[in-house]
C-alpha cells in the first residue's frame, strides 16, 4: 500500500501527460494535470515555510551560535509575507477600481515591489557578481596547461574572454583584412558558432536521451528509487 499506490499515481499521471501530447482528445487533460501540478507546487511552499520556521525557531530556542541571524531571517520572512499577501501599498486595477484587491502585486508603489527592487535584486545580483572573483580565483589556482585537453580549455577561455572585451579588439585590431578571421573578436564568434555549437549539441542530445530513458523507467514502474528505502523493489 505504502509503495504500490504512489507508484500507480506516478504511472497514471505520467502516461496522462504523455498521451496528451499525442492525442488531441486528451490535450486538455494534460493542461489540467499541469495546473494541478502547479497548485501542488504552490502549496508545497507552505511546507518550505514550515521547515524554515522550524529550523530557525529551534536555533533561537537553543540559543545556538548566530541565533540573532535566525531572528532576522524570521522577521524578514514574516514581513515580506505580510506585505505580499496583504498587497500593502498596491492600488486597484484601473479597469476594476471598485475592487481594492484587484491591483497587481508587483506595481510601482507597492511595498512588495519595494522589497523586490531594494533588497532582492541588489542582494542576488551582487551575490552572482561576487562569483566573478571566485571563478577567476579558482581558475587561476586549478587551471594548469598540463596536456592537450587542458591547453584547449585554457586557450578557448582566454580567446572568448578577450574576444568580448575592448582589450581583445585592440590587441588584434592591427591584423590586415585578409587575416581578419584571426582577430580575437572574430575567433571568439567562430568558436561559439562552430566548436561550442557542436559540443553543446552533443551534450544536449545526451541529456535528452538520458531524461527520456529515466522518465520511461519511472513510468513503467521499473525505477522506484524515488520512493526511497532502497532501490527498485
Amino acid at each position: 500500500m505504502k509503495r504500490l499506490v504512489p507508484m500507480w499515481i506516478a504511472i497514471i499521471a505520467g502516461f496522462a501527460m504523455l498521451f496528451s501530447a499525442f492525442f488531441p482528445a486528451t490535450e486538455s487533460l494534460g493542461e489540467i494535470f499541469g495546473d494541478a501540478f502547479n497548485v501542488i507546487a504552490a502549496i508545497a511552499f507552505v511546507l518550505g515555510a514550515g521547515s524554515l520556521a522550524k529550523v530557525n525557531l529551534e536555533k533561537i530556542s537553543r540559543k545556538d551560535q548566530g541565533w540573532g541571524y535566525a531572528v532576522i531571517t524570521l522577521i524578514c520572512f514574516v514581513a515580506t509575507l505580510v506585505v505580499g499577501l496583504g498587497k500593502i501599498g498596491a492600488h486597484p486595477n484601473p479597469n476594476f477600481a471598485a475592487l481594492p484587491w484587484s491591483g497587481e502585486i508587483q506595481q510601482e508603489g507597492a511595498v512588495f515591489q519595494w522589497i523586490y527592487e531594494f533588497a532582492l535584486v541588489p542582494i542576488t545580483s551582487t551575490m552572482f557578481a561576487l562569483l566573478a572573483f571566485f571563478v577567476a580565483s579558482a581558475a587561476f589556482r586549478a587551471f594548469r596547461a598540463k596536456n592537450v585537453e587542458a591547453i584547449l580549455l585554457l586557450v578557448t577561455a582566454f580567446i572568448v574572454l578577450l574576444g568580448r572585451t575592448f582589450a581583445g579588439v585592440v590587441l588584434t585590431g592591427w591584423l590586415p583584412d585578409w587575416a581578419s578571421g584571426l582577430r580575437l573578436e572574430n575567433l571568439s564568434v567562430y568558436i561559439m558558432q562552430v566548436f561550442n555549437t557542436a559540443g553543446n549539441r552533443a551534450i544536449i542530445i545526451g541529456i535528452a536521451l538520458g531524461v527520456a530513458a529515466t522518465s520511461l523507467r519511472i513510468l513503467l514502474g521499473v525505477d522506484r528509487s524515488w520512493m526511497g528505502g532502497g532501490g527498485d523493489k
Binding site: 507546487a41 524554515l52 524578514c76
Partner: peptide
Amino acid sequence: AVIVGVSAAYAMVLGFW
C-alpha cells in the same frame, strides 16, 4: 539572513497570487 527570509516569502507570495 535577510535574503533567506525575503526570498522564501517572495516565492510563497507569488505562488499564492
